[in-house]
Amino acid sequence: MPCAYDFSLPGLAGGTIDLGAWRGKPMLIVNTASKCGFTPQYEGLQALWSETDHELGVIGVPSNDFGKQEPGDASEIATFCSRNYGVSFPMTAKCHVKGAETTPLFRWLATQGGLLAHPRWNFFKYIIDREGRLSTWFSSLTSPDSRRVRDAVSRVILNG
């Protein structure tokens, strides 16, 4: 049975982001967009990345699938995230997270989480445990600095 560590994604700055490199570490995978009402959540994602000393692999997956809210190219996305939110966690190239062209990772996440786990907007959050299994997920409405997300992150970090 596949796990999150079996997937890789194209990197925003080129190359490949191999999730297998985080084997044994928990991850938070988020579909992102630069022109969304939830875009300020980048700040909370960056805080989790920094506060956990990168023990939590935070991975941003830009997508233009919802409201065409990620129209930029890789350079524009990288500049926006760095300049406005100081993003230093890994970011993938723009990917589809819904529809016929859904990237395999997001197809797997939706299968693992069930019908409601399919991203229905930008900034859906998926927490992966140390075995590479989906631990839980949160919709766009639950911010990364909410108690619910922070408690879930603490659980996957401590259960190692």
Rank of each mutant, 00 (worst) to 15 (best):
P104V: 02
S63Q: 07
S143P: 14
A21D: 12
V149W: 06
I127P: 01
G99Q: 04
C95P: 00
D73P: 02
S75M: 11
L105G: 01
T136R: 14
P71M: 03
W22G: 01
A4V: 12
N122T: 08
R147Q: 15
A74W: 00
G11Y: 05
K68H: 12
G20P: 09
L56G: 01
R147G: 09
F106M: 06
L134E: 13
S75K: 13
V97Y: 08
M91S: 15
N159W: 11
S143N: 13
T142N: 10
K125D: 10
A21W: 00
I59E: 05
C36R: 07
F38Q: 04
M27E: 10
S34K: 05
K125E: 11
A33P: 07
D18R: 07
E55N: 10
I17K: 03
G113R: 01
P10K: 03
I59H: 04
R120F: 03
L56Y: 08
T52I: 09
L19R: 02
G44S: 06
P104F: 02
R133A: 14
E101C: 03
A152N: 02
P26E: 05
L45Q: 06
M1S: 15
P10Q: 04
M91W: 00
S88R: 15
R148M: 14
D73F: 00
Y85L: 06
Y126F: 14
A33F: 04
E55R: 15
V97W: 08
W108P: 08
S50R: 13
V30C: 10
R23T: 13
G86N: 10
F138P: 09
N84Q: 10
S34T: 13
D65E: 04
D6L: 05
D6M: 04
P26L: 05
T52Y: 08
E51H: 06
E76S: 13
E101A: 14
T16H: 01
S75L: 12
N31Y: 10
G114K: 13
S139Q: 12
P40C: 00
C81N: 12
M27A: 12
E131P: 00
V97L: 10
T79L: 15
S140F: 00
T32N: 10
F38D: 11
S8W: 01
F124P: 00
E101M: 08
G132Y: 11
V149K: 03
C3T: 14
T102C: 06
G24H: 11
S82M: 11
E101V: 00
L134V: 11
F7H: 03
Q41P: 06
C3Y: 02
T103L: 07
I77C: 06
R120S: 14
T52Q: 06
E131M: 05
L105N: 02
L109K: 08
G14V: 03
T142Q: 12
F124S: 13
A93P: 01
T103W: 07
F80I: 05
R155A: 14
G99Y: 01
